[in-house]
Write a protein that binds this DNA or RNA. Structure first.
Lengths: 348, 348
DNA sequence: CTGTTAGCGCTTTCAG
DNA sequence: CTGAAAGCGCTAACAG
């Protein structure tokens, strides 16, 4: 403890072993800790001169408030937890960027975690946020359990991209069914009758919605769907390429609708490796526009989503909820749009 | 306070307004808080049966330790802060993924922040980590000030990708000079004598190293370098394309070396827009291999970096430092490798 | 406008 | 092996 040394007038440049505390700066300015707290946190009455001395002392000594102490006392923090499935996937990265931007403007700290689409990791993340008394959490849910845990403990959660929670909470999603419908209808209108669907095998509403849209377009066009053309992939698809290759070989679709950017990438590689030309031999449509799709030749027709806006909306929803915890759960649904490029054409 | 209700034998399923505390579970198991602490945190003697009762009570009541209280008491946490320039850039995303993986294995929590290459945001991030008593921080530095701040307060920092700190700290970088040298030498060996360099205008060691390698290759090949071919771009390059376009128009280079993935992407777009064929009209080499480079036609010759390994190394360095704070600062340097693809050929 | 007092939830001596 | 007591740094009544 620094009561052993004389505490007065020390130059603030020594390599401090002990971080400086509010008490230190109060003493340096000749006030009590409470006054210092009021001055520095900006709430409560403090005389202008006291405040000035305090502020001066604070930045002379390089004071950094101890977040733990504050959180412990106030029983809440300004941290908002965010957990996404895969930080390395551009979709989630852009989502996070959107969230962070809005959160920052509202003076909240984003804490980002990846869960590799593992429900266990997701729960661990939720517990970590609980432990640090995060004010709220935004997530692309894997299982619904994490959200339940959080909600049960009273932390606000908003789900993005997918909606899985059984507990009531806000969510913002894309109109997946409509996006998939548009993509599929486009293919069908071009005259394709053997359209393959590449979709992730989960309970997630996103993939379910995309499959529904795919089916609905078939139904409305009166095209019978061969179930073998629906290929489901595990979340971590190590052998996706082989599976796609087999699909191509055995069922000879004339068009492929890949329902996320990773599957589209895999499909594209398989097509190239097999020497199949786009769009002459096979047409390809993706879901979620990422830069490469516009760069390859031919460019890929895709259902584009407002990814960053998705993030911003989620953050806004959370902010609103923190403001008014009692308001009824809200679901926002953003519209995707079909961008037609060179990878789709009538079957030959 | 829950002293007002009878605290015994409550089912743990009510929507708890107040999170359950260690004291709650101690009471439920009929011990003192100290014993509960010892049992649950696993250090100190506790009888097997007491521990069993405590553990049972803890997960019956859904106990989540309060991280703030623990951090406050122990004066340190298990959080490692990570701040990168741009979460949306695949390079940084993969870097973060590598870091997180290694950190997780060592049971540390990664807290990720983006600073948009703004020194002010970087400092704000550093302060946030200071405030939450992060054990260490890993960053792709923008200015060196943040690192100084951190180091002065005694938190371990390791710089990744670039080295800017004036304070002594660990770092792990790529051999940028060598990578750029190889790329440039390749172009020169092909017979190009008007090679343009696209580089970010910063003090960063990464870009400086790349420029040096570029110059060194020219010197060794005995090719005189026209300074107009060296194009420097601000970190946030809004008009990069115009600048590149002008470079092409006015100085007619026969090859371009774009020293990061974003500049390569911009250059590629400009080339395409102007109808310049790769590699017939112009050769292009990038730095930092990202997926699209292998997908476009022709594929892009590039200096590939071990990005995830860079992250893992940084995390390992930090872990080592936490173990042994006194060890001398260490600089690890990883080797990049030139991947020759179709975008480079002799000038026509 | 300011100081005193108390306590957030946890860990850690220190006695038993 | 266990409990009592103290205190981490901060904020929020509550008197002055």
């Amino acid at each position: 403890m620094n009561a052993t040394q004389h505490p007065e007038e020390e130059e603030g440049r020594a390599p401090l072993a002990q971080p400086v505390t509010l008490t230190d700066i109060a003493r340096a300015a000749g006030t009590s800790a409470s006054t210092a707290s009021r001055a520095l946190s900006g709430r409560g009455y403090v005389s202008a001169e006291a405040r000035a001395r305090l502020v001066a002392a604070a930045d002379r000594l390089g004071y950094v408030p101890n977040a733990s102490a504050r959180t412990l006392k106030q029983r809440t923090s300004r941290v908002v937890g965010v957990v996404v499935s895969d930080i390395g996937n551009q979709f989630y990265a852009r989502l996070a960027a959107g969230i962070e931007q809005t959160l920052r403007e509202a003076d909240y700290q984003m804490m980002l975690l990846g869960d590799n689409s593992e429900s266990a990791e997701e729960i661990a993340g939720a517990r970590a946020f609980l432990a640090m008394r995060a004010r709220g959490v935004i997530m692309t849910p894997v299982s619904g359990d994490a959200a339940s845990l959080l909600v049960a403990q009273g932390v606000a959660v908003v789900e993005v991209d997918r909606q899985l929670a059984t507990s009531p909470c806000d969510a913002v999603v894309i109109d997946n069914e409509r996006g998939a419908y548009d993509a599929t209808a486009h293919l069908l209108a071009l005259g394709h009758s053997k359209v393959a669907l590449l979709v992730v095998d989960t309970e997630w509403t996103s993939d379910a919605g995309r499959e529904q849209g795919f089916r609905k377009a078939h139904a409305e066009a009166g095209v019978e769907l061969d179930e073998r053309l629906v290929a489901r992939f595990p979340v971590h698809a190590p052998h996706a390429k082989e599976r796609i290759e087999r699909l191509l070989r055995e069922d000879a679709p004339t068009a492929i609708f890949a329902s996320n950017n990773l599957l589209a990438e895999q499909a594209w590689h398989v097509l190239r490796r097999r020497g199949l030309r786009l769009p002459d031999d096979v047409s390809l449509v993706g879901f979620d526009d990422v830069p490469w799709m516009e760069m390859v030749d031919p460019a890929i027709t895709v259902v584009a989503q407002p990814t960053e806006e998705l993030g911003r909306s989620a953050a806004r929803l959370l902010l609103r909820r923190l403001d008014d915890p009692a308001s009824p759960p809200r679901l926002d649904c953003l519209q995707p749009s079909l961008v037609i490029r060179g990878s789709t054409a009538p079957p030959s």
